[in-house]
Design a protein around this nucleic acid. Structure first.
Length: 585
RNA sequence: GGGGGUGUAGCGCAACUGGUUAGCGCACCAGAUUGUCGAUCUGGAUGUUGCGGGUUCGAAUCCCGUCACCCUCGCCA
């Protein structure tokens, strides 16, 4: 070993021992005759002391060490006198009195400092190996490790088996756009990188493995966001002989362990379950942030009595009361909110201020008593609130009020009622209307809610699926389903979706075949590990918890990927471009 | 694919309505300094104002194009 201790190890109890530390030169403080060098590694910071009177040549060498150069320092551990102790450092009670120094590597001038300062995103990604040396990323990556380790231990304790599934998979007919990989052996054929290990985990259930999990890399060739990367990691889970409740209990238990291990926090379980219809009504979103109150209420029937045509002629009217909004928002602010509602698809924003003197402004003149009192009661409004209403088709009302609610929470700087709000959204509709036909809400293998089998024939749009999402603080952390495991039910669902048996066979052949060979009832869930980790650490961008992420346009600024392939490689694959790639591209 | 934002020294930023030699802090280099710990003090060096074009006596500043990064809608388990 080149070192006897790490830079975070030494304590006063080590005084008198000889030690060698290896690390990066973090800072130097030269006092003319005595020089302090802080050595850094991932375990901590340690102060090495060089004295001219002790060894003039060594002192002179150490003075000229470059910052971020790599050195090994050997010397004697000395306890610091009481007035020289640095209580801010874990190793602040000691210092290493240097007797010798080996420069292990030089360091060119740094593009940015290794510290907590703001550095442009582009620069960080270009020199990611240096960015990862900084405290924020060191902390985040170590916490991510703690998280995945906790998850693995918790799943293992529940008798889950971690199984790896292929990265080179096959293009699937549905879902996100996929990354394709051309085959050299099978010219003209392609693999696809998996959007998720969905099919394989079901096959594991057919194989009798009973409880599967995987920390799985997934790929989607879609446009990116702060919470989306082209490759990301899912905590993928599948279980046999289970109901949704069984899946919930396992995930709640596993997350409870994770919170404890990573944050030292006791996460309350079980998580509340909220039906899809309820979240869409109250929050206008299927991933609601429930920590801000301000729930949406339906007032369609209540406002039928007004002379306000916007209200009486719309299919749906809903509203909310923004706490303190009457005083906080000027006419100009309300105009801005109205513009946002218009951008979301609504025709406008109907509003009035509920002041201590009564209703003011906006649609006030259309609304008389007793309707005013009824609306105040229905929305739970208090004097000082701004009452907001949207009248339109149901989908528009939900979307607009959902957006408005989040915007109001932001503009009014509403305090969240708690730090962590985790809940299950359940009872999703199995089918959605799309251009006059029915399509799967999630995927065509989602099991029918046991109470709704009869509706399959009479009113399929009211059929609920055994589908669930896990939502945390307004972010979708994951989702899953119980799968259909019987051929007759599957055939029925395919029929409702307008798929003939032949089409179903050609699209999903081997899966259907597997299900027909003694597939157990099974279901599971997949959690977005990057999002989970970011939320746990208070990061709003998942790139802060990914070691080597890509930019908004899916390129890696450090390695320069994607890049052109050599002509030979392309030729071997039998690929011919329609037009030559642009020079310099 | 649509909309928006940003781009000035190695880094973070400044430069009023177009106006003389584009500034400040940190880092860097040299010197001073025997107890600092985000050390301090003195001095020094550093610019294709992303790139290309245009308007103008004169452009970091205005216009057009382009590139990169970011946000957002569409898209996306």
């Amino acid at each position: 070993m080149m070192r006897t201790h790490t830079c975070g190890d030494l304590r006063p109890a080590d005084a008198g021992r000889k030690a060698t530390l290896c690390g990066w030169v973090a800072t130097k403080r030269d006092h003319g005759g005595v020089l302090f060098v802080d050595l850094r590694d991932r375990y901590g910071l340690a102060q090495a002391t060089f004295r001219a009177e002790q060894n003039a040549a060594l002192y002179e060498t150490a003075r000229h060490l470059p910052l971020e150069g790599v050195v090994a320092v050997t010397g004697t551990v000395e306890a610091r006198p009481a007035d020289k102790v640095n209580p801010k450092m874990a190793t602040g009670g000691v210092e290493l009195n240097a007797a010798s120094l080996e420069a292990l590597n030089d360091c060119k001038p740094m593009p940015f400092e290794i510290g907590d300062g703001e550095v442009a995103n582009e620069l960080r990604l270009q020199h990611r190996f240096l960015d990862l040396r900084r405290p924020r990323m060191q902390h985040n990556l170590l916490k991510r490790h703690a998280l995945t380790l906790a998850l693995r231990k918790a799943f293992d304790a529940e008798r889950f088996v971690e199984i790896e599934t292929p990265i080179l998979y096959k293009a699937t007919p549905e879902g996100a756009r996929e990354y394709l990989v051309p085959s050299r052996v099978h010219r003209g054929m392609f693999y696809a990188l998996p959007q998720s290990p969905q099919v394989f985990k079901q096959l594991c259930m057919v194989a009798g493995l009973d409880r599967y999990f995987q920390i799985a890399r997934c790929f989607r060739d879609e446009d990116l966001r702060a919470d989306r990367q082209p490759e990301f990691t899912q905590v993928d889970v599948e279980m046999s002989f289970v109901t949704p409740e069984d899946v919930f209990r396992v995930i709640e238990g596993v997350l409870k362990v994770a919170w404890k291990e990573v944050l030292g926090v006791d996460l309350p379980t079980p998580f509340p379950q909220v039906p899809y219809e309820e979240v869409m009504l109250k929050y206008g979103s299927d991933k609601p942030d429930r920590r801000y109150g301000m729930e949406i209420r339906d007032v369609t029937e209540m406002v039928k009595s007004t002379s306000f045509k916007v209200f009486t002629e719309a299919p749906i009217v809903r509203g909310l009361a923004a706490p303190g909004g009457a005083a906080a928002f000027s006419r100009k602010h309300i105009d801005e909110l109205t513009a946002l509602c218009a951008a979301a698809g609504a025709k406008g924003l109907a509003w009035m201020k509920y002041t201590p003197e009564g209703m003011q402004g906006g649609i006030e003149k259309f609304i008389q008593e007793p309707l005013r009192a009824q609306l105040v009661a229905k929305l739970g409004a208090k004097p000082g609130d701004l009452l907001c209403f949207i009248a339109d088709k149901k989908e528009v009302v939900e979307k607009t009020l959902g957006m408005l609610r989040l915007e109001l929470a932001k503009r009014l700087a509403l305090k969240p009622s708690k730090e962590w709000d985790l809940h299950w959204v359940v009872d999703f509709p199995l089918f959605l209307q799309s251009e006059g036909r029915l399509v799967s809400g999630h995927h065509p293998f989602t099991q029918v809610h046991p109470e709704d089998f009869a509706l399959l024939d009479t009113d399929p749009t009211r059929v609920r699926g055994l589908q669930y999402d896990l939502v945390m603080n307004g972010t979708e952390l994951g989702g899953g389903t119980i799968r259909i495991h019987r051929a007759d039910v599957q055939a029925k669902v395919f029929g409702i979706l307008g798929l003939t048996p032949e089409e179903a066979q050609s699209k999903f052949g081997f899966l259907l075949d597997a299900l027909a060979h003694g597939a157990p009832p099974h279901g599971g869930i997949a959690l977005g590990l990057d999002r989970l980790c970011a939320l746990l650490l208070g990061e709003s961008d998942i790139r802060e918890v990914i070691a080597f992420p890509k930019t908004h346009k899916a390129s890696c600024l450090m390695t320069g990927s994607p890049a052109q392939a050599s002509e030979k490689q392309v030729r071997e694959l039998g690929i011919v471009f329609q037009a030559p790639p642009r020079a310099g591209a």
